[in-house]
Nucleic acid binder design. Sequence first.
DNA 1: CACCCTTGGTACGATTTCGAACGGATCGTC
DNA 2: GACGATCCGTTCGAAATCGTACCAAGGGTG
Lengths: 235, 235
Amino acid sequence: MTPRVYSSGNQLLDGLPQADRADLEADLEIVTLAAHKFTQSAGRVMDYVDFPIDAVLSVVATLKNGDSVEVGTVGSEGFVESDAALDSPFSQRTSFCQVRGRVGRMSISRFESRMTNSGSFARQMRRNVRASLFSAQQFAACNVKHSILQRCARWLSMTEDRVGSVEFTLTHDFLAIMLGVRRPGVSEAANALQKLGAITYSRGAVRVLDRALLNATACECYQACKHAFAASLRE
Amino acid sequence: MTPRVYSSGNQLLDGLPQADRADLEADLEIVTLAAHKFTQSAGRVMDYVDFPIDAVLSVVATLKNGDSVEVGTVGSEGFVESDAALDSPFSQRTSFCQVRGRVGRMSISRFESRMTNSGSFARQMRRNVRASLFSAQQFAACNVKHSILQRCARWLSMTEDRVGSVEFTLTHDFLAIMLGVRRPGVSEAANALQKLGAITYSRGAVRVLDRALLNATACECYQACKHAFAASLRE
DNA sequence: CACCCTTGGTACGATTTCGAACGGATCGTC
DNA sequence: GACGATCCGTTCGAAATCGTACCAAGGGTG
């Protein structure tokens, strides 16, 4: 008989050695987040760290004029916010729930305690930070080199992977903010994707019809980030 | 009589507690890098880590079509490459010397040994990674929201701070690659900055005439990154 | 001094994206 | 079933940026 091992639903946690997972359940509060619910604020002390289960969180950089641009997308492959694994209780960025779902929430004190007391835990978190850094860098290049259509397809591909469902809710307006472009720019791109047969789109609900086509329409940044996160879980 | 304490010229190292600095000299080889000399390659094992003294290094993301975009600038406030502080001997990105000068070079094995054996060393490195992450995220937003003129001014401001001299060498062509734009785009912006009286520019040599004006022409991202790196050294 | 190579000023039309606005369609609510 | 709010398709001219190309000036080299 195999021993029952707690499974949180977050890949980062579930990839930890059994010793770390044994007492994990007590440190995690399962919280269901509504779409657009904020989870961290830039410059504020973090009270907790979130390990998404089926929620998708977005990390954004906010400019002085109020514009926000997405600088990271986090699903069950990661956690929010990276700063906690870099010896800081302050979040440098704002984050919120992009697609409704559950997260495993750990108090910052328990997180920090695990960081100091478990080498395997600390390494697992840092490997994820590494992928997040890679991802932010990739976005920097992507934002200046790829078209709105490519970036839309990239975003939808990344989100589909994280949601784990071909359908999820998202308005053009919101996606435009994430990509740092105008709303009609997204509408045009979304329409093009619809005409291609890659997706259908209706009143804030996306459905991916042809995943391969969607992925192929996305720029290389989709695969690059996917591989970076996969590698960070594997190694 | 105050004890003679080794000073490397790199702020990150010189900000370490005395215990860490005591035997630092033996682990550092002072290397003078020529402009455009590569120091790390994406996907390759790192042999060493560089702590710039008066050199300025650039970290770039390279796309499949060969285009490179700068995703990090590193002077004496930091080190290259962050991945070493994130439990990985592999560099995720390519880096090279942007402005000729000296770096303190430490073998990856000595670096890793210090990371495991000195908490203060590890914390100092991770605080810098945190600033690098912030910076990469800021670039992502900047690249999609700010004009070429603003980004040129940002780049020149950042580099002037790191070089520690009002004059340094840099061609329009190279700056265009870093910013991910066309060379004539940079020429126009550089010309505008020259007409404003912020800089002079001639055959690959920039001279900053009016630092305040240059900084003011730059987007907020200049100050944001500056503060992030300053805070990472202070805390 | 003649040459060549690097550097950067400038111009061209093409393309993308912008900012702003209008209007139609769908949905929830009363 | 009427209403208001949300969502999105579409359009407009304006602006930024692109890709490409050509040429002039400066500097190094032989």
